[in-house]
Design a protein around this nucleic acid. Sequence first.
DNA 1: TTGTAAATAGTAACGATTACGATTCATTAT
DNA 2: ATAATGAATCGTAATCGTTACTATTTACAA
Lengths: 137, 137
Amino acid sequence: MNTHEAIQILKEKGYKMTGKRKDILNFFEASDGYRTAKDLIEHMEISYKNISFDTIYRNLHLYYEMGILEKTVLNGEKQFRISCAQHHHHHFICNHCGRTKEIDVCPMDEVANTLSNYAIEGHKFEIYGLCPLCQSA
Amino acid sequence: MNTHEAIQILKEKGYKMTGKRKDILNFFEASDGYRTAKDLIEHMEISYKNISFDTIYRNLHLYYEMGILEKTVLNGEKQFRISCAQHHHHHFICNHCGRTKEIDVCPMDEVANTLSNYAIEGHKFEIYGLCPLCQSA
DNA sequence: TTGTAAATAGTAACGATTACGATTCATTAT
DNA sequence: ATAATGAATCGTAATCGTTACTATTTACAA
């Protein structure tokens, strides 16, 4: 997913394209990991001194609903990253910088048969730690 | 982990044993799944009309720090259950009632070698859905 | 260019959690 | 048993992330 693709999706669905929406997309495209709403606010305030919480959260949710962003929760905060979900996968997430690495292993295949009477609706598999860059720093 | 064991741990570490602390343990021993602070407050208010948030959260954290309770976060709320961590394992968690089922599969063995330059500090693997009881209801 | 619905600012409200001073209580040493 | 003392608790305010609301502004289509 990149900014261009995302803009196409928004247009198709009839959403209006604003400068703020483009900047939000650029912010996430330039990040290669999870970012909090607060991170985004700090970035947006450079260009838009008085940007509203409402705008931040409304657009984060919009992008999430449209599959443009992925979401997770860390330390009680929602975190978002550009969607890379062409195929099913999980993430290593750096505790220090939020950068992610794709993990293609998914444990669900192994597990499904031990849960035959259970209706599975979702699962979460995440690995936390320090990425190579943050270890040397 | 059961109430008796937990009381032993508290005594050994020099914590005082109060009626409220025992009741909290009983509440979690009687549950077989994750419960929120709110669930616990509702239960405690039956016996202690004016119990304080402070008491609830202080003791939840104390028990968690001592390994008496396990913790997870669901829908932005911290949830706790009696610890069953004699061995490493994960959980299926019912979205409706919070009941859990132990999962002995752990994907980390498979994954570790693909993260050779990463310092792994933790991981989370949880499966969500409806347990057999909640499906029939 | 104008009309209209969508997007936004500014701000209040919310829910979960944490924090704190004053009071009560469990434990231990007498 | 009792008194001393430090821990536990209450009552409540504060905090944090997030959601919600109204008035205003803006993107886009006619």
